[in-house]
Design a binder for these strands. Sequence first.
DNA 1: TATTGTTATACTCTATAACTATA
DNA 2: TATAGTTATAGAGTATAACAATA
Lengths: 153, 153
Amino acid sequence: MGSEMAPTTARRTPAEEAWAAMRRLLFSQRLDMLGIASEFALSPPQLFALRSLEPDEPAPMSRLAEVLRCDASNVTGIVDRLEDRGLVERRAAPHDRRIKHLVLTADGVGLRTRIAERMDRPPAGFAALTAAEQRELRDLLGKVAAGCDEDRG
Amino acid sequence: MGSEMAPTTARRTPAEEAWAAMRRLLFSQRLDMLGIASEFALSPPQLFALRSLEPDEPAPMSRLAEVLRCDASNVTGIVDRLEDRGLVERRAAPHDRRIKHLVLTADGVGLRTRIAERMDRPPAGFAALTAAEQRELRDLLGKVAAGCDEDRG
DNA sequence: TATTGTTATACTCTATAACTATA
DNA sequence: TATAGTTATAGAGTATAACAATA
C-alpha cells in the first residue's frame, strides 16, 4: 500500500528497473528490521551491536563505533543500556587500560542467538522462487555487492 | 569491511543464501540512504516526506504519518522543519477544516526532483551485470516483493 | 462523540567539543 | 603529545497521553 513512490521517468534502463525493484524491497525490509528490533525490545543500534559481538570474543568499544558508523561518544550510552539489561559487560583490556572490551553475558549470548535465528530467516517472499531461482538471485546479488565494494575501494 | 556479520549456521538453504546476499546489500544501501539524506541536508524522515509528496497534489498530514509509519504527533515537527526551510506549505482543506493539506512549494518541487534523480540512479554495483542479468534480477526481485506483499495481506 | 492535528513529556540516537585516564 | 572512552550539550526522531478545533 503505497510504501514506495512511483518513478518520475517513463523510460528506464534495465539497471534502473532492477534498482527500482530492489529499492521497493529495501523499503519494506527497513520496516521489518524495525519490527524485529521492537520484538526484542531493542533499538536498532542495540540490535546491531548485539549482533556484531561474537560470544567469547571481547571487542573494544571503538569497534562498535565502526560497526554502527557513529561517533564514539554515542557508544557509551548504547552500551550503558545493554549493560543495564545484563546483556554485555565492560571489561578493562589487560594490555592497555585505556581500552574497554565488551563481552556478551550468558543472557547476551542467548538473546543474540534468538536474534540471529529471527534475522537469518528469509522473508516469506523468497518462497515465491524455485530453488534454482533462489540460487540465481543469490549469485546476481553477490555480483552487485562485489561491484559496489569494488567501487568503494 | 565487516559491514555485515557472518552467518551462524554452516549449512544454508538457497533461500537463506539469497537472503544473506540481499541483507548484505540492504545494509550498505541503508548507509547510502543516510548519505543521500545528508547530501541534501535532510533527515531520513524529511527525505521520505519530500519524496512522497507529488507536485500539485495536496496531501493531508495523516497520509504522511502512514508513509513514514510513525505516530501523527511526530509529523507536526517534521513538517515544521520542512516548512521552515520553505519546501512545503500547510493549507487548510476546504471541505473539512480539521484537515491540513501539505503542498510542495516551488523550492520543494525543485529539491524533490534533484532527490529523485539521485535516488533513482542505480548504485555502481549494477554495472557489474549484463543488461540481461539486470532484467533477470529485476524479475526475481519483483517476484520476491510480490510474495512478501501477498504474505502481508 | 469521533477525528485531525497539536502540545507536553520522556526516551533514544546523533554529532561536536571538552574532559579524564591512560599511553 | 596522542588515544580510548566519557561527559556535556544540542537537535532530531519516536511513542504515549492530553488537548483544541472541528465534524
